[in-house]
Design a protein around this nucleic acid. Sequence first.
DNA 1: GTAATTGTTCTAGC
DNA 2: CGCTAGAACAATTA
Length: 253
Amino acid sequence: MAELPDLTVFAQILSRRFKGKIVERVEVTVGKKLNVSVKELQTALEGRDLNGVRRVGKTLQFDFGDQVLGLHLMLRGELVAVEDNEVPRFQVLAIHFKGGEGFAVLDMQKMATPTLNPEQNDVPDALDMEESYFTSLLAKKRTVIKTVLMDQHVMRGIGNSYADEILYHAGVSPFSIAKAVPAEKLFKSIQTVLEKAIKDISRANGDELMGELKDFMLVHSSKLKVTEKGELIRTDKIGGRMTYYTDMQELFL
DNA sequence: GTAATTGTTCTAGC
DNA sequence: CGCTAGAACAATTA
């Protein structure tokens, strides 16, 4: 469930807490998604110090100088701070730093994917793509707009939840055809919604690393029946994914 | 026991 | 061949 805003905040918190610390021990509890052997990962990271953590698309990258650990949390991955000997339930991977502090990746579905030295990717990030790129992208897509926003091959970082939030903010129906959608307006909504979410999540979660972050969904929630403004929230499936929207969102065809 | 969940990858069809 | 839609798969809990 972690998308761009959550991951951005995770990266900030991880950087603040662990930057400069030296890796004492790398613990791999579930290794099937790892692209190298456990031993290779350990020799690559142990003894190095963490230069920082950044978000790249829907992944995190832990920068250890000439070695980088990529991490995709997939559907249910979480990050928690751990003490030296602590092994939380559903642990996939843990990094223990000298001095006793560390963090663990948890995933009850075991789908979280750590990658040593992930390949570079040219697909622009949703938060730093050029407006001209977005405009010409929409112009050549005949797909439903929601699937374009979520397509990691054309822009990275937006998943099912924030696609709904962005389209609600823009007043654009998720069923609109991409090339008919006013690109400038939607582009602004992408920036606005994502940046606001980063601020809200950051403020609400502080410096703690406690698994899932609290979020602020206005439409994408099974608990809500109406929006803050009292608009009825409808549900449907787009591409097999649950979609939340209102009748206030204009359909462009 | 089964429904529900969603990111990614694969495949069929136009 | 390029693009799109949809299915398959992953794994576990409520």
